[in-house]
Computed example of a mutant assay.
Amino acid sequence: MILYFTGTGNSEYVAERIGREANDEVINLFERLREKDFTEIHSERSWVIVTPTYAWRIPRILQEWMKKTKLSGSRDIYFVMTCGTNIGNAGKYLKSLCREKRLRYFGCLEVVMPENYIALFKTPTEEEALNIIRRAEKSIEKAAAKIKNGEKFPRISASAADKLSSGIINDLFYPLFVHARKFYTTDSCISCGKCREVCPLQNIRMNNGRPVWGKDCTHCMACICRCPKEAIEYGKHSRGLPRYTFPKEKILS
């Protein structure tokens, strides 16, 4: 069974592609995360977690959900992580999570996809994004083939920089950077409430037709990237940058 979390669509696409190739069920975890639903899930087939990479590890909201949710049936589990550059030493922490959950770790595979972290990095143009997605197909096919055949993913060697990124940098990243204080709306806002709908932590409420962000933010970038009017900014950094969501109409047409 394939479980996925996505902010702007990269992991959704990868999960669905693997699902088609491996002929496996695909479940979006958005509502479970949003509603803090830790109800047991059962599968006789291997578990496959498809997730974006946040500071060179899986998102903490997903990690906490996994810790609190019983995955019954199969004890084998794969992780497929979409990222803008690399996943660092994420495998070390996934192995630890699997030991805690008494799951057999079958490896972690990275799939480089278009960058969506508009809070700190540059997002791609549509043409750049399409080229990155096309290059990612080989990695997606490789992951699907290994999963379908029940083979472990190849082991990834972590460099000193990888260990630093997934370790100390990840520890500092959340308290220093993961907050919603810099989000704001411009006069282009049409009060549609889309940002509130796509927030996985219900961290956005509408006040006099404008979104107001709370303190429970995971920096998934769904609100800023999925705004139909590009009316949300993150400080000064996002100004003039293209908003990225997975271009389904271009890839699937």
Rank of each mutant, 00 (worst) to 15 (best):
I2R: 05
M66Y: 04
I133E: 09
T53Q: 11
N23T: 04
N149F: 08
D187K: 04
E100I: 05
P154E: 12
C227R: 00
P114S: 10
E151G: 08
T51K: 03
K250D: 13
V48T: 11
N149Y: 09
A222E: 04
N10M: 08
T51N: 11
C225R: 01
Q63H: 14
L252Q: 05
S96F: 07
N131E: 15
L130H: 06
D171N: 09
G150T: 03
C83S: 07
W213A: 03
H42L: 10
I232F: 08
L172M: 15
N28R: 01
S11H: 04
V80P: 13
T51W: 03
E16D: 07
L176C: 11
M66G: 06
R32F: 13
A129F: 04
K250C: 11
F246R: 00
K36T: 03
L109R: 00
S139R: 04
F30R: 00
V111E: 09
A158S: 15
E230C: 12
I132H: 09
I58Y: 04
R17T: 10
R102H: 15
L109T: 01
S157D: 13
N89T: 00
L241G: 05
P200H: 03
K92T: 09
I204H: 08
R34W: 08
A231R: 00
L172R: 04
N131L: 14
K101G: 13
C223S: 05
E127Q: 07
G9E: 06
F30I: 00
S238K: 02
T85Y: 15
Y184C: 08
E25K: 08
D187R: 03
V111R: 02
G235S: 11
Y78I: 01
A160F: 14
R75W: 10
K138P: 06
P154A: 06
D24F: 09
I232Y: 03
N149H: 08
P242A: 06
G7D: 06
I140P: 12
G209Y: 07
R57G: 12
A119L: 10
E64R: 10
I251R: 03
P211L: 05
L241N: 03
D171W: 09
Y117E: 06
V50P: 14
V112R: 13
A90D: 04
C223D: 08
R20I: 03
A161C: 06
C192V: 01
I18D: 10
E40A: 10
E16F: 05
G7V: 04
K250S: 14
T245D: 11
T53G: 14
I232P: 14
Q202G: 15
I147L: 09
C220N: 02
N207T: 11
G150C: 12
I49K: 02
H237E: 11
G91N: 07
E137S: 09
N23S: 14
C83N: 07
S188Y: 13
F121A: 10
A15L: 08
A143D: 10
E115Y: 03
A231Q: 01
I61N: 11
F173S: 02
K36N: 15
N149A: 14
I77K: 02
T82F: 13
L176Q: 07
C227F: 05
I61T: 03
I41R: 03
F173G: 06
E110P: 15
Y54F: 15
D37F: 10
E44C: 05
I156Q: 10
Q63T: 05
A90Y: 07
F173K: 00
H219R: 05
A22I: 01
A90N: 07
I204Q: 06
M1S: 06
G167T: 02
G167D: 12
W47M: 04
C199R: 00
R239W: 13
N203M: 06
